[in-house]
Design a protein around this nucleic acid. Structure first.
Lengths: 337, 337
DNA sequence: AAGGTCTGTGGTAACGATAACAGGACGCTA
DNA sequence: TAGCGTCCTGTTATCGTTACCACAGACCTT
């Protein structure tokens, strides 16, 4: 007898026990109302046959698809991998599987990827930031599933929001920079089109400084993905162009690390002559001396909370849950004093 | 009239055009043999109604589930995020969606996660390393889908293998270290149980040195996830215990970076007094001075190739494809000479 | 003893798509 | 004009599971 071409189905298990598929289904889903003897028999048969449930069929029949669509812009800078790990933890034990889509930092791609993922009729959607194309919003509304927007909390969300106020983070850093006595500040930023989180952060920062009569000396942007060498190059350009600069506020920690190397190579005391701050609180920084000032964004926590929020919503909680992660400023050793 | 509670289905589109579902299905899948007028009509109706195909139903009917199960041990060290990005690129345009599972560097978890993912009846499975539990192997065999094992190529695979010979990478580094004149070598390693890739690498390295009459001075291990501070602490312990050490071979670049900071802080010249090498070729290193010697593992490339291999196998290629990524030794500036 | 609740189980019909085959309309050849 | 192939579209069955309802028997209650 040659092996069956098709994998074992619930029907096979049912036949093996002399029961109906329905009873097998109940046992395998742990529903109550089945006698202990039957439960034991079904479980034994399922194990012996090597039965693997078919979630595709289950999803089609049950209207509930235990998938969560997750769209992050990219995985290249350690921020989103950490969020994903948090999300995995938050979803742990719920039976919900994350399905990943890469939005490539671009809302047209995000829209396309979302359309692809919605075709799986996921039970929830997680996406990054608060800014999305009109069609993206429409698709999400139509889908009628819980939506969690993560990372940013400066504005209204489609449904739930877990994030931090980028603007507040910028303001906090602005106050710390003022208090440290820096007065000639240059921003090193990503040239990424419409990175709204960066914009909010920098505008919170700039407003705080300007309110204190300290204008921003200038801004320099880089193209493409962040990297330490780009930060270094940018910082070199900044000190060449504005020799009087005494603070570099960098859009993220990679850039800040590069800036630190540039300043050290140029023989400028840090923070005595020029201070630095980054953003994110990446682990990479842990070993640098001096430790770079940054704002920790609780990335893992954001992911975890997003997972919990999804579970809450699926459990009947009302739309529009919000959870604010407080930006935690870590002054490190690159602010004066 | 209140809106339909259920999302638009293919049947709704068919009804709107006065056609059968079958014809709509053909148009939407781009099958040939439909008149241009019909195609246009269906597409217009689908767009107007905001129809989103239901891949769950399609998968159940078509026996082909356009999902690829991907199990990586974790996302915490930038290696696997890069692999995932490569995989996403390799799968681009094929309609295959990666579904991620985290194996948590532990084969029992891997087994559990695999069982969960196989319940989706994916078209292919990607997993990390060549060592898996007996049940894991059995499930994979039973599933009867292409399997690609990535990262390691020191041994036979279940089906396809894309990776590099960790042993060869270790040997290469061993030769480079010998050539550079280092003679008192300490290994800084992860305490992770059964990290076979690390073991292969270190044993290739140690054999090469020992064959040249240079024994390994000692090994120190750390617990948990890699980080720069752990590397620093480990290196401090190493120089305290073996003051004569003149080379630290680290299990990865994070540890190596920490070791560099420790040596610099201890006032030991690098590489004059003590050399360092890491492993992976992470971007983090790009900014450090001196640049740390490492072995680039072509992580993105591994992911991309794995994706291509899956497509080839689904397209009829025979089992057992192998692709060897040559470990690329980057001597940086932390080997003598 | 009659009428109720509760327990455990089975039957049947979806769920939304696709595979495989069937067949009508049309034009061309002989 | 019959015969045949091509092009296009429809019909029917099926994928593996779960929802919903039915129902037999055990066990109470009065």
């Amino acid at each position: 007898m040659r092996p069956r071409p098709r994998p074992i189905s619930q029907g096979d298990v049912a036949a093996a026990c002399g029961l109906s598929e329905m009873t097998v289904s109940r046992v395998l889903r742990g529903q109550r109302g089945v006698s202990p003897a039957t439960i034991a028999m079904v479980q034994a048969a399922a194990r012996d046959l090597g039965y693997v449930p078919n979630r595709i069929a289950g999803a089609l029949a049950g209207a509930r698809v235990p998938l969560v669509a997750v769209i992050v812009p990219g995985l290249s800078n350690m921020v989103f991998p950490e969020v994903l790990m948090g999300l995995a933890e938050g979803l742990e034990g719920s039976g919900l599987q994350p399905v990943l889509g890469l939005g490539n930092y671009d809302s047209a791609t995000e829209e396309r990827v979302l359309a692809d993922l919605l075709a799986w009729r996921p039970s929830a959607v997680v996406l990054t930031g608060l800014e999305h194309s009109a069609r993206t919003r429409e698709m999400l509304l139509r889908a009628g599933v819980p939506v969690v927007e993560i990372m940013d909390s400066d504005g209204p969300g489609i449904d739930c929001v877990v994030g931090l106020s980028q603007r507040a983070a910028g303001r906090d850093m602005g106050r710390a920079v003022l208090a440290a006595g820096h007065r000639h500040v240059v921003l090193l930023q990503s040239g990424q089109q419409g990175d709204r989180r960066q914009e909010s952060r920098f505008s919170g920062f700039a407003e705080t400084l300007e309110a204190a009569g300290v204008p921003i000396l200038g801004r320099l942007a880089y193209d493409g993905a962040s990297s330490v060498p780009k930060g270094r190059a940018l910082a070199e350009a900044a000190i060449a162009r504005w020799p009087e600069v005494d603070f570099l506020y960098c859009t993220n920690d990679m850039i800040a690390a590069g800036a630190l190397f540039a300043l050290q190579a140029a023989g400028r005391a840090v923070p005595g002559q020029t201070g630095i701050a980054g953003f994110s609180g990446l682990e990479i920084l842990d070993g640098l001396a001096p430790r770079i000032a940054t704002t920790d964004t609780g990335r893992f926590e954001i992911g975890r909370k997003a997972g919990e929020m999804i579970l809450a919503r699926l459990d009947g909680a009302a739309r529009g849950l919000r959870h604010e992660i407080a930006p935690r400023l870590d002054p490190g050793g690159t602010l004066r004093r």
